[in-house]
Amino acid sequence: MIDILIQAIFWLFVVLTVGSAIVVVFSKRIIYSAFALLFTLIGVAGLYVFLAADFLAASQMLIYVGGILTLIIFGVFLTAKIYGMTIPDQAHQRYLALLPVAGFAAVLIHVLFSADWNLLQSTAEPTTENLGKLLLTTYLVPFEVASVLLLAALIGAMRISRPREEDDDR
């Protein structure tokens, strides 16, 4: 009974993720794409939960759903003519696009077959504490580099969006 329910919820998340991802790609209205991305990201967070990655799932919700997507939707709102705007649906460079798509698919398929998929037999353990310890010991340098990069991006964004000083005199 419980197993069937868990299976059903898993497939619900799969359908949610893939279904909304299809809308993201094929919708002709940019606003629909943006909002469909919301459900794709939530679905991926749900799949993380099924992979016993609880902290990752929460971070996905917090950062991608709560932060980044909000900014994307802001960007969409601030574009001109959002009500009527449609994305032209004729594909450009259709055959050239096959090249990167095939390459990326090859990488994914390679990972799928070469990865060591060992299924966890025991119940899932919380990951937060171990992640935190690893980030501040073994992976301290990449962690700090990433934060410095983000800080630089933050300052750069502010510098670009502010009016220049000589403009203030006008």
């Binding site: 909002f35 609880d54 971070s59 919700m61 917090l62 709560g66 909000t70 939707i73 709102f77 919380p126």
Partner: peptide, 28 residues
């Protein structure tokens, strides 16, 4: 009783924003 209960609150708190933004947009 989630191990990440505190993050859960913040994560779903962040979702409410979409209701308001969507309401504003869809009203035309």
């Amino acid at each position: 009783n989630l191990n990440i209960g505190y993050l859960f609150i913040l994560a779903f708190g962040g979702l409410t924003i979409y209701g308001t933004v969507l309401a504003g947009w869809s009203s035309n």
